[in-house]
Design a protein around this nucleic acid. Structure first.
Lengths: 408, 408
DNA sequence: GCTTTTTTCTCGACAGTCGAGAAAATTGAT
DNA sequence: ATCAATTTTCTCGACTGTCGAGAAAAAAGC
């Protein structure tokens, strides 16, 4: 019931250890004095903490000494690459990508498997076997795996690693913890949530080129991923506490009551207007209560886009419909979450020229936008890299937190 | 740029002082041992902190000793009523209520003024004069006023005490800090936000009848205020950090693109279907692009409700329309903020029997509700008390935070 | 080889929490 | 009355933190 938890000197040390680790994550190599400047901690405190972390095996002194200038040469600290390893699982509708990453964040191995047939339990068995393979290929022992980080489109339980709804399995929930070896911790996040996290990370990294110990204040952004399905992630870096990221159910938020039939079985979802299958449906004037296509090759949508760019009325309309649905949806997002810049990504971002007008019109209809102005809309390419960055960011945040807590 | 701020022993003490103050706020009178149990702090620490706070003049030892039982009698700590005072301003569309409250939270004085004519600057002058009167009537010196806490319907800047949009002044922004004497701090919140805060407080108070130092985990709720305009507040008590409350722009979120004309000038807002004027408009089959009535007496809506309860088709439809708009809106809230119980309050809550069906139908249309189930819907009476409680809760949180920071 | 310069490291002071036990104050039994 | 029992409050020393200052280290320049 206490409004806040009690505090103690041990917690202070924990917090400051985490602070040092996060600074090191940002700059990869730092000297004693740099750490002190970046964190605002006194030099003596930095000494104590780096000693802790060195003893715990998480960081090490680099051999490379920074040359130039006179005076005692700096000794650089950096993460110990072999402190432990991280397995990433990027799940898409037709394949699964597995990656192995060391504690310094460098990619060691990667392979892609086509996604097998069958229900959740077979799916989890496939993943379990692939993880096994990932480790044996690089001769990594089980205990060295710090964390497994998985991502998928769909709705994820914010607390447990359970997929509550996904394009492939629908409402059949998938519990990833059951695919893990005993002792492994697993993280499951929505894919676009990771994109939002990565974008926020990039912004903060950019803002902190010069070492600045100032507080950034509140900062928010949204990532909108366009494709067969529609994903949205929000990142909020509040002044107090760590940045918070969430993936609301944007794609299946109600766009228009009693509207087009969606893959999820409901009617009028945003996705039923802006997903690839919806664009296809509208472009060919198929009745909007037609059961959606299971899968639409991008080349099909590309064809419609070409026709639209040539001015074909129905194709133009299909994209405009999609833009309007997205714009109305974003206006609701802003109504309920406040204004924030929106970054548009995913396969569908290549049609942004066709979506833009409808999107802006859809936004402009609402009170908040008329009042607070149009949010910044930016197209950002290379979603896969963003997903990768997001995985690292989330996973290492968890891992470093644990190190800070245990390393005494 | 640091992901989190650095920590230090001084901050620990600050945090723990705030903890003790909040415990005292909850239980009003506590003995040394009770404080220790409730906060989880060691007895010795409690001694040090109570000494601090006593010296600062924020708390005092009660004369009343708890009788019964043997052993050394407890000495009870409680807030010093005359530590300072709090002025509350509750703004509604036709009047303004001023209240004076002491540091223990008891109401000392209250009066209501009809709201004058004129623009923002006259409005602020009126408030300034009334505040002056509030203080002189109770012989309170300026320095004894710890905080001014104001509330209004409409959209409030989350950082500064500025009303960005209000039913009366529209988009003419009103900066409350300019109505304050130098040195006064002012808090401005949306009215329904305060209701949400108060409801969350009640829940936590209820859960903590027995002293329990356990963490409550994440808890969320929404307050929906029905009336001439539609207000929504969300309270989130996360495990880390204090409970967060926000008032998104729900009433003017887009309900239906190109729909009924709203007071705000936009089309298709939730309010343009569920506000009193909208119910009136629909009940009399007035075209939905008619400029809304400035003010609708409740008795008018009461009459429609009576007709609806007698089965008059058009009246029933008007309430059903309102219910649907609210239901669709809440489904979007849940899509973007996750599922949470909704508490319905405000003058319009008396028509809940007429709204319920449309509301549930409007909710049921969406994917999230089909997946996660219908949220709990509860009607809660006596909105003014909730607003008052919310004021106290927010204001004292700020005040106690400052005391914890400064009392050395 | 010595000074200058820059960085790292170490030491003592200070602030905070905690557990244990002393001190205080009341009840109840002798 | 007096004294033991009981319960609460208070105090003291141990421990863990952070911090500033200055010592120690190590390279560059003269």
């Amino acid at each position: 019931m206490p409004i806040a938890a009690k505090s103690s000197p041990e917690l202070v040390r924990q917090q400051n250890r985490a602070l040092v680790l996060s600074a090191l994550r940002l700059h990869t190599r730092m000297a004693h004095t740099q750490i002190s400047d970046a964190t605002g901690l006194a030099s003596a405190t930095v000494s104590a903490i780096t000693a802790d972390l060195e003893r715990a095996g998480a960081i090490e002194r680099s051999e490379i000494l920074s040359a130039g200038g006179r005076g005692r040469p700096r000794v650089l600290f950096s993460q110990r690459r072999d402190y432990g390893y991280l397995a990433l699982i990027v799940i898409s509708s037709d394949s699964i990508e597995y990656s192995l990453v060391d504690y310094a964040g460098t990619l060691l191995d990667r392979f892609v498997e086509p996604r097998g047939e069958g229900g959740p339990s077979l799916f989890l068995q496939q993943i379990s076997a692939a993880l096994q393979r990932l480790l044996t290929r690089s001769r990594i022992r089980h205990e060295q795996l710090l964390l497994v980080s998985a991502s998928s489109k769909g709705l994820v339980d914010p607390m447990r690693p359970v997929l509550l709804w996904s394009p492939v399995f629908g409402a059949q929930s998938v519990d990833f913890s059951s695919a893990m070896q005993p002792g492994w911790r697993v993280l499951l996040n929505n894919e676009t949530l990771l994109v939002a996290g990565a974008l926020m990370d990039r912004e903060q990294r950019q803002g902190a080129d010069e070492v600045m110990p100032l507080h950034p204040g509140e900062r928010r952004l949204a990532a909108l991923s366009l494709g067969h399905s529609i994903g949205l992630g929000i990142a909020r870096s509040s002044a107090s506490g760590p940045t918070e990221i969430l993936a609301p159910n944007f794609g299946h938020m109600l766009h228009s009551a009693g509207g087009g039939l969606c893959r999820c079985g409901a009617r009028g979802c945003v996705e039923a207007y802006a997903g690839f299958y919806a664009i296809l449906r509208n472009a060919f004037e198929v009745p909007s209560d037609t059961v959606p296509a299971k899968f639409v090759p991008v080349t099909e949508v590309d064809k419609i886009a070409i026709r639209a760019r040539q001015g074909a009325r129905q194709a133009v309309q299909a994209f405009r419909q999609a833009g309007l649905a997205l714009g109305n949806g974003l206006s609701r997002l802003i109504s309920l979450h406040g204004s924030m810049p929106v970054f548009i990504t995913g396969l569908g971002a290549r049609y942004y020229d066709l979506l833009d007008e409808g999107l802006r019109d859809g936004l402009a209809e609402s009170h908040v936008v008329r009042l607070g102005g149009m949010p910044e809309l930016t197209v950002v390419a290379d979603e896969p890299s963003l997903v990768f960055e997001g995985h690292l960011s989330c996973a290492f945040a968890v891992i470093d937190q644990k190190i800070a807590g245990s390393a005494g």
